[in-house]
Amino acid sequence: MQVRVQREDFDLSTEIAELRAGQRDIGAVLAFVGTVREMNGAGAVSHMELEHYPGMTEAALKAIAIEASQRWSITDILVIHRIGSLQACDQIVLTAVAARHRGEAFAACEFVMDYLKTKAPFWKKETTERGAQWVEARASDEASLAKWHTTA
């Protein structure tokens, strides 16, 4: 299990290869890559600033990954979240889950992203032609999180 918060971009192929290295019982690898939207409700996004609380953020991501590994039979998990100034279409986050079976990988990956969106201490500020503003939490993110409270 690995979690990283970093300014540098990541290479999906390299990260997946490292996740799978030496593990012969993996039957599925599921990866989710989140990117900076080029458009939002306020217009074209020129860039986004991502801030975090060092130490607390990594601990929150690790706790989310541990919970996923306790809920599902997964082989390994990787979470990378970028911080700093990102341009439209840049990669923000990678969640990759390796498991013996695809169902476990799908569920664990979705769980990690739903929790990450609502529970990890990140703050996003988007800049559009209207200026800069902090991104508010969305009701749909909370609704996605709620389903895990009734699912084991």
Rank of each mutant, 00 (worst) to 15 (best):
A21M: 13
L19P: 07
G84W: 11
F10C: 06
A65S: 04
G84K: 04
W123M: 10
V45S: 05
I16S: 00
Q133E: 06
R138I: 02
F32H: 07
W134T: 03
Q23Y: 03
F122D: 01
H47G: 13
T151E: 13
F111M: 15
L78W: 09
Q6Y: 12
E38A: 09
L50I: 12
M1L: 12
Y53G: 08
V36W: 05
V45N: 00
I77H: 03
V29R: 00
Q23L: 12
S73P: 07
V29K: 00
Q70M: 12
A137N: 14
K124D: 12
G41E: 12
V45Y: 00
E104D: 10
Y115I: 04
A68E: 00
E18F: 10
E51D: 06
V3S: 15
E142Q: 12
L50G: 14
P121F: 01
Y53N: 14
V5S: 05
E110W: 12
D141H: 07
A96S: 03
W148D: 14
P54L: 09
T118G: 02
M39L: 15
R20W: 09
E110L: 14
G34W: 11
V112R: 02
R130K: 14
K119E: 08
A152Y: 00
R138M: 05
K119S: 10
E15Y: 04
D141R: 06
I16N: 00
R37Y: 07
S73H: 11
T127K: 02
A107L: 15
V97S: 02
R82C: 13
L116F: 07
L94G: 03
V79M: 13
N40H: 11
L116V: 01
I74K: 04
W72M: 09
E58R: 03
E8P: 04
D11S: 07
L12F: 00
A132F: 09
P121L: 05
V112W: 04
E8T: 05
H149L: 11
L94A: 05
R7Q: 12
I16K: 00
S144E: 12
D90M: 05
V33I: 12
I80F: 09
A146S: 07
H47C: 06
